[in-house]
Design a protein around this nucleic acid. Structure first.
Lengths: 180, 180
DNA sequence: ATGTCCATGTAATCCGTTACATGATTAT
DNA sequence: ATAATCATGTAACGGATTACATGGACAT
């Protein structure tokens, strides 16, 4: 149920439309919690029903109207209460690992190819993180909110770095298997 | 839809009951793909309907009967076909990261506590991996299936190691925030 | 007495994904 | 022309979680 809280967290920064939120869940906060625009719109309707956000339509010319969602006092309280509760371990579902686990029943050239793709994806993510870090955080004086985001980003960076290296090692180990 | 394949992969090793599979998804293959016993039973029913496993009941005294599931030829073929298809990136949902992202609206002592718990969980996982590695793989000559599992395990180990370090660094960064 | 292990499942609910649907503006 | 961007959603389906349900064996 933490999509609700993730949305509220975004709205503590500034009021946003569903569209804005959907984009946010595809970048920034989306690095730690993914959600599609359909999920966002559904959850916004629920948050409205629960009185955790206020929604007001804003007229626009030449574009569809926006519906701006603002977090309420009870919304802020909900975020604080959530912050006190223990976190779940993120659930793991990694097909690539399962394929290694099943190596004997798998097409190894295809797996090597898929490993290569995965490595590229992690590299891409890493460089995206770096660009954000340089642009928004390096050499600036930061408030608490920014420091928090920087810590999250820093963790993301070292994690992606390590994953890239680990997967490259796996590529070598795969080669060894193929040579025998 | 990869739970189906993960179950089939387990059954390539040996025929198993739903109960056995549920335990397997709570350890070994569960390190890379988690599933509850409810999910396993439901998916087994489907695999039976699709002819990818054969199920036979085995009489037991003093215990409930077991239903042993054996992978069929078409089951093996399904695993191979699946191995050719590209893998999805694992989806990310990490409340702890979201809480860092929302640092200003969060109770920091509570967060530090939760970080500590998370570090312990990664350490526990790491030592579980090590025990398995020592017991089943170190200093033994291995076939392809075993080599695959060892590669997966090795990746798991370096990932958990790195996560532990990263989170310990985050603890220090949190301390810095609290001191200002 | 209390709890854990063995072994099977069903039911309800919730979360996530895919597909469908609309329609104007602006850039190539 | 074609595609992308802006901006809103609904509907159907499938996957995951939580709760419920049974019942004997065996250990403390």
């Amino acid at each position: 149920m933490a999509l609700a809280e993730a949305i509220l967290v975004c709205l503590t920064d500034r009021p946003m439309s569903g569209y804005d939120l959907a984009k946010t869940f595809d970048a920034s906060i989306g690095f730690f919690w993914r959600a599609s625009h359909q999920q966002v719109y559904r959850e916004l309707a629920r948050l409205r029903d629960r009185g955790l956000v206020d929604s007001t339509e804003i007229e626009q010319r030449g574009k569809p109207n926006r519906i701006l969602h603002t977090i309420t006092k009870s919304g802020e309280e909900a975020v604080y209460q959530w912050s006190l509760k223990p976190c779940k371990m993120p659930s793991i579902k990694d097909e690539l690992m399962v394929k290694f686990y099943a190596l004997e029943n798998v097409d190894i050239p295809a797996l090597r190819e898929q490993l290569g793709v995965r490595i590229d994806q992690h590299r891409a993510k890493l460089s995206a993180y770096f660009r954000i870090k340089e642009r928004f955080y390096d050499g600036k004086s930061l408030n608490v909110a920014q420091k928090g985001k920087l810590i999250a980003l820093t963790m993301g960076i070292s994690n992606e770095k390590e994953l890239t290296i680990t997967l490259e090692n796996a590529l070598v180990m795969l080669q060894d298997v193929e040579e025998t």
